[in-house]
Design a binder for these strands. Structure first.
Lengths: 135, 135
DNA sequence: GCTTGACCTCAAGTCGACTTGAAGTCGCAG
DNA sequence: CTGCGACTTCAAGTCGACTTGAGGTCAAGC
């Protein structure tokens, strides 16, 4: 079982060496030994990095991701946390969908002034409401 | 036509006074006069602030928003820009939707180990691919 | 034996969108 | 006239996720 150089991990994961050092410092991954100064990683780190990227793509912060990954690599995940994140994504998706429709409409709308277009005005209100509630 | 104090604009827009000053400094809004030291805003600034929030919600940066708003308040918008943003949103929405489904599945998946679940493995690959291409 | 290039550490910088803090100015109610 | 609270400026701080830079180490190939 060959250990990997940081450069090799970078190549295979698509992440930069600086990112890998940063992740190690933040406790997200661990190098298993050193060869002189140089870190060596077990191949399993690649799986773990994939999990980290997945967590990020799902909207978790690095701190949250770390708390979801146990030392051995297999995540022991709180299902309620996943469901909550799924719900949050759902809200985001709805908002973005409305925005996308609005943009397409605005791009095609024949109204001389955007402010006169009902669809546009509805969007304005939605944006204002969101801004208000996120304060 | 009464002019508004910064506090009044803040109250009506849901933004903080500090944000309004910041926006003015960045050229997104303009105060029309001063009462002593104090800025006065025309009521029309509220409409403009709504447009700014809308632009942000659609994913434009403040710099982009500024370039889309002419001095008089009515945006002269490049329709191609809107369409491009709509397309970008579409990509994001698809990705988030896949993620949401994946999360819901993971929350319900009976597989003893996430890594053995085909749905989960598919997600892992998607995340890895994205990471790779965004480099 | 020397060069090269991949690695190392640690501190500081970056980006966007604001916020915060210190120190000062004003207008208006009492 | 005094006090208070809402405003002012300007510089610096915050947050998350990294990146960059300076200065140093080390193994392998020529």
């Amino acid at each position: 079982m060959p250990e990997l150089d940081i450069g090799e991990v970078a190549r295979q994961s698509g992440l930069r060496p600086s990112t890998l050092r940063f992740y190690e410092e933040r406790g997200l991954i661990a190098s298993t030994s050193r060869h002189g100064l140089r870190r060596r990683f077990e191949a399993a780190v690649l799986e773990r990095l994939a999990l980290i990227s997945l967590g990020q793509a799902a909207g978790f912060s690095l701190d949250e991701v770390r708390s979801m990954l146990s030392r051995d690599g297999t995540p022991r995940i709180d299902r309620r946390l996943l469901t909550a994140r799924a719900d949050a994504l759902d809200v985001t998706i709805r908002r973005l969908t409305a925005m996308r429709e609005g943009l397409r409409h605005a791009a095609a709308c024949p109204a001389p002034n955007y402010l006169e277009c009902p669809t546009f005005r509805r969007l304005l209100k939605v944006a204002a409401r969101r801004r208000r509630s996120s304060r």
